[in-house]
Design a protein around this nucleic acid. Structure first.
Lengths: 153, 153
DNA sequence: TTAAATTTGTTGCATGTGTAACAATCTAAT
DNA sequence: ATTAGATTGTTACACATGCAACAAATTTAA
């Protein structure tokens, strides 16, 4: 069905549109949380989350893990450093590299936001219902599997 | 499972992140098409698509149908007008309003892109497989149903 | 009728973003 | 050892974006 090329496109049924719309709706929800509670931007939140999850990383690997362009990472790292939520340590073996690690305060804030993230997801699961939630996860996993070859952004 | 609040958050499994990542992956695919073929930005493509679908609309209703902030619509309409892909007609009953309609050239380009959009979606369905594709649609529909109360952006 | 409130659409401003260029450093090839 | 190339991270630039303020027009209330 819907192979009729005389039918104009229904934007509200078009997958790229629906995906962006859904991402905006959900991100607005969680985005309000890290913005209101911690004054973070999305790149800053992702950087914090990645460092909290993996411990010490370089800027490049933060980008690889969180799908962020290196300029976004660079600016987010700078912002988090200004708040003293992370510290940089130049690697002695390879002096191009900086090891990035959360400070105690960074970790504290990370744990607090990670808990809110878990709550948010639980709430989302409840609101959508378990079956639709699982369907969503399945669909998103398929996209990642088939289109996610590019790791960087 | 995963209710353990001592477990750090796994960003790559977090729904808001996965949704944004999937939206980026898919949008990069179709975005290349309307950018390369027609030199359009996303707001311009959405405006074209909405007018192609509904015929004559006001800027406000374009925003409502395509989830775009009125400033995005305003700028996209301006750009499409500069290309002579649409024309404005001030409503005589209410002179705040402008009726926007695609020109012949705008329609021609719309039909061409709408066809590419249908092909893109068909290809995506093939790549993901019908079951995963249906799961994705089901999940996205659930988000729209439960979080999509806000029509405007 | 007149004044206040609302609606429609545009624009100034500050901020966010990707591209390209770059400096510094390291690696590989000869 | 030298030189070309690659990698890491930052910055200048241009462009996109949302917010707030705005003008113009209409509607509502008094």
């Amino acid at each position: 069905m819907n192979d009729d090329n005389t039918t104009p496109l229904a934007l509200e049924a078009f997958i790229p549109y629906k995906l962006n719309r859904a991402a905006d709706l959900v991100s607005r929800g969680f985005g309000q949380i890290y913005k209101d509670r911690a004054g973070l931007t999305r790149p800053e939140w992702r950087t914090l989350a990645t460092l909290g999850q993996y411990g010490t990383l370089t800027a490049t690997s933060i980008g690889a893990h969180s799908s962020m362009h290196k300029t976004k990472v660079s600016r987010a790292v700078q912002a988090l450093q200004d708040r003293k939520w992370l510290k940089r340590t130049t690697d002695e073996k390879d002096r191009r590299i900086e090891r990035l690690t959360l400070t105690r305060e960074g970790e504290r804030n990370y744990r607090s936001l990670a808990e809110l993230a878990h709550s948010f997801e639980t709430r989302l699961k409840t609101v959508l219902g378990e079956e639709d939630f699982n369907a969503l996860n399945r669909g998103l996993a398929a996209i990642e599997t088939h289109l996610g070859k590019r790791i960087d952004m």
